[in-house]
Design a protein around this nucleic acid. Structure first.
Lengths: 379, 379
DNA sequence: ATAGTTTGTTCGTAAGCTTTACTAACAAAC
DNA sequence: GTTTGTTAGTAAAGCTTACGAACAAACTAT
C-alpha cells in the first residue's frame, strides 16, 4: 500500500511528492510502531512518532476502518488521568504465503501469520522439473497453501534462485531453466492477490534483519548446492546494477589454483564451499583430522573472498545460512579468523560472524517480510 | 536547505513526514531540473516534474524571492501560443569553496561557481604539520579563498583523508594526526558559513557522478600515498557501519605472500599499489619490459582484490583516480582483465574501468557537490 | 470533595496541491 | 484584417493534511 519516503541520502530528488504521500508515510509509521511495540494507546504512538494526538487519532481511525488496527481494551495499570485505550495491529486478520524455490530437490512453502510465525507448511518435490513444469509446481504449491488458509491472504512472497529484477521477473535461473519469466505478474494474474518475487539470498537477508536481530550493514552468505549472498547496507537491500548483487559463487579465490568449476574457471568459491563439493571431499577423508582440514580450508577460502568486501563495505556482521553440520564450527572459525588476518583490526576487529538463527525457514520468512513491507509498510 | 525524501527502499519508515517536507522536496526538484537542463519555462518544469503549472509557479515565486532563480527573458523560437518566460538557477549569485586535504605534502583549495567550474585556486604546503597546526592551515586556506570570492559563499566543502562521520567529525586521520576532531563544527563556528566535511574518496565519487558522467553503481579507487576507495550504490554514497567504507588499502591480496606493510601485515594492497612503493619499484627496474611487468603485477593485484567486490555488489563501473602515468595503461588493463578472468562474464563482461576525467581536482569538486547538494538539494 | 493528570475528541486554522477557469500573447489560415 | 486554435501563466475555490487550542471524560492523590 505504501513504500514510505525513507530518509534516503540520494543526491538527486527525482519524483514529485504530494501531501497524500506524506500521509501514506505517516500511516506506515503508525503501523510500524504498532507492529514492533505491540499494544499502545494513541497517545503513546503520538509520543513515539512525534506526530500529534489529533493526527494519530485520525490515522488510527482510517486504519480501524480498514480493519488493519483494532482496539484491544483499556490499559489496566493504575495511573492518574483517563485510562488509555490500547491498540494493536489486527494480527489475526490476514495470513501470508511464503514460498522458497531455492532448494535443489523440492519447493517449500508455508502459511505465516503477520508476526512471521509459521502456521502451516507444504512442499512439493521438484523431480527435475524445469521451465513451465516448474512454474506449474509453484502454482500447485500456492494452491495447497491457500486451501489451508483460515484468513484472507495479504500476499504471496516468493524467494527464487537466480537473478530477479525489481518487477519480479526472473531474468535467469539456470537450475530451473528459467529466463525472463514474469513470475510475479503471472502469479498475480492467476491468484488475484499481491505477489512479490525476490532473489532467495535477498529474502534471507530481510528475514535475518527482521526476525534474526541482524544489524543494518550485513552480508548473508547462503551455502547450498551453490553459493550466493545478499547484502543489507545502511538498512537498504542491495540489488546491483543488473540485479545480480551477491553473486559470489563464481568469483575466483586466491592465487594458487584450485579445482575446475562447471563455469570453466578454476578455483571459484563454489568449488571450495558448495555442499556437493564439500560432501564429496569429506567422504574421501579418512580421519577426523583430515575432515577438519577440509572444513578449515573451505572457511579460509570464504574468508579470503570476503575480506575485500568487508573492507570496502565496512560490514558489521556476516551471517551464514546452510547446513549447520558443515558451516558451524571449524569452517566458520576459519572464515572469521581469515577475515581478521586479512583486514584492518581497528575497523573490523569486532566484526561478527554467526550462523542464522532462522534455520531452513529463512527464505520463506524473508519472502513474508517482503509482503509485510510491500503491503503494510511494516517489517 | 533540504535533503529530499528520495525514493529510498528502506524497509522501515522511521520519522514523520509533514506536508512542508513534501514542499521542500518539490522545491529541490524544481532546482534540480533547472540545474541540469538549464533554461526552462515554468510550463517546461511542470511537464518535466509532473507537478501542475500552478504549483510550479508558486514554487518558482518563492525561489525568485530568495534570489535562487531568475527570469532570463522570453524564448525566441517561433511557436503558436504565448511565448515562454525562461528561468534559470541564479548561477552567478553564489560561489563555493572546495578544500582537498588528501594530498601528502599540501592542502589544496579552490573557489568554484555553482556549475562546479573552478574560478580561483589556492594551496598551502603542509610542511609536516599535524594536529592543531594542520587545522590552522585549513583555516588559513579558507581565508585565502574567501578573500578571492566575488559573491556570497554558499558553503565550504572539505574532503579529508581518514574516517569521517556524518556530522563532519574526523574520527581518525593518521597522516594529519587527527582523532575525533570536530572539523565541521569548528569551521562553521569560525566562518559562520555552512560547512560539510566528508571523506576524500567519497567526495571523489560524488564528483565523478555529478561531473564525470559516472553511473549509479560505481567504485572509485584513489591511488596516492595510500589506497582508498569510495562507493556509490544505486546512486547513494556508502559510508559503512563505522564510517570506514572504502578502506581497502590494508586488505591482503592473494595467497602467495608479498611485501611487509607498515600495518604489520604482509601483502596489503598498498604494498603493491601506493605510489611511493610503485615509484620505488619502478626506479629499480632496468628495462622497459621490467617496468611493464611491475605495472602489470600491480594492476593484477588490484583486480584480485576487486573481483569479489564487483561480484558482491554487481558494479557497472570502476574509476581510477591518481597519477595518470602510473595508472593509465598497463596497470588499468591488467586490472580489468584480472577482474574479468576472476568473475562471471555474463554479469560483468561489460564492466567499465577507466581513469577519472576530472584529474587532480576531483576531491575539490566533490566537496563542492556536497555543498550544492546540502544547501540547494541539487547536484 | 478537590485538585491535578492523562486521554482522546472537536473545532478552527495554516499549508500545500489540484481543478477549473480565466487572460495574455502568439501562429496559421482565411 | 479577422478568426481560430494553441501555449503560458495566474486567480479562485476546494480538498487533504497536519497542527494548536480547548474541552470533556476518567482516573489518582490529597
Amino acid at each position: 500500500m505504501n513504500q514510505g519516503f525513507g530518509n534516503g541520502r540520494e543526491l538527486r530528488p527525482t519524483t514529485k511528492v504530494l501531501p497524500e504521500h506524506a500521509r501514506g508515510h505517516n500511516r506506515s509509521l503508525v503501523m510500524q510502531t504498532l507492529y514492533r511495540e505491540g499494544q499502545l494507546s494513541r497517545a503513546d504512538i503520538a509520543r513515539e512518532t512525534g506526530l500529534t494526538r489529533v493526527t494519530i487519532s485520525d490515522l488510527v481511525a482510517d486504519l480501524i476502518g480498514e480493519n488493519l488496527v483494532i482496539e484491544i481494551g483499556q490499559r489496566e495499570d493504575a495511573r492518574p488521568g483517563k485510562p488509555a485505550t490500547l491498540l494493536d495491529l489486527n494480527r489475526d486478520a490476514f495470513q501470508i504465503i511464503g514460498i522458497d524455490l531455492s532448494e535443489y530437490a523440492r519447493f517449500r512453502g508455508a502459511l505465516l501469520d503477520l508476526d512471521g510465525k509459521i502456521l502451516e507448511r507444504a512442499e512439493l518435490p521438484l523431480a527435475g522439473s524445469t521451465g513451465d513444469a516448474a512454474q506449474q509446481k509453484v502454482v500447485a504449491l500456492v494452491e495447497l497453501l491457500i486451501d489451508k488458509a483460515t484468513r484472507p491472504i495479504l500476499g504471496i512472497g516468493v524467494g527464487s534462485p537466480g537473478v530477479v529484477d525489481l518487477a519480479g521477473v526472473v531474468l535467469t535461473a539456470p537450475n530451473l531453466g528459467w529466463t525472463n519469466r514474469s513470475l510475479q505478474q503471472e502469479l498475480a494474474e492467476r491468484f488475484g492477490i499481491a505477489v512479490i518475487v525476490i532473489n532467495d539470498a535477498n529474502a534471507a537477508v530481510l528475514a535475518e534483519h527482521s526476525f534474526g536481530g541482524a544489524t543494518s550493514d550485513m552480508m548473508l552468505v547462503k551455502v547450498g548446492h551453490g553459493v550466493g549472498s545478499g547484502l543489507l547496507l545502511a538498512g537498504i537491500p542491495l540489488f546491483g546494477s543488473r540485479f545480480a548483487a551477491g553473486e559470489i559463487g563464481h568469483v575466483v579465490v586466491g592465487t594458487d589454483g584450485g579445482l575446475a568449476c562447471v563455469c570453466g574457471k578454476v578455483g571459484c568459491l563454489e568449488t571450495w564451499l558448495a555442499t556437493p563439493r564439500l560432501d564429496a571431499a569429506l567422504a574421501l577423508a579418512r580421519t577426523a583430522e583430515q575432515k577438519e582440514q577440509i572444513l578449515w580450508a573451505a572457511g579460509e577460502r570464504l574468508g579470503i573472498a570476503l575480506a575485500p568486501v568487508v573492507g570496502a563495505l565496512d560490514l558489521s556482521e556476516i551471517v551464514l545460512s546452510g547446513p549447520t553440520e558443515l558451516l558451524d564450527g571449524t569452517l566458520a572459525r576459519a572464515t572469521i579468523e581469515t577475515i581478521r588476518a586479512r583486514s584492518m583490526p581497528e575497523f573490523h576487529g569486532n566484526l561478527v560472524l554467526r550462523m542464522t538463527t532462522l534455520g531452513e525457514d529463512i527464505v520463506l520468512r524473508g519472502a513474508a517480510v517482503m509482503v509485510l513491507s510491500g503491503q503494510l509498510g511494516v517489517s
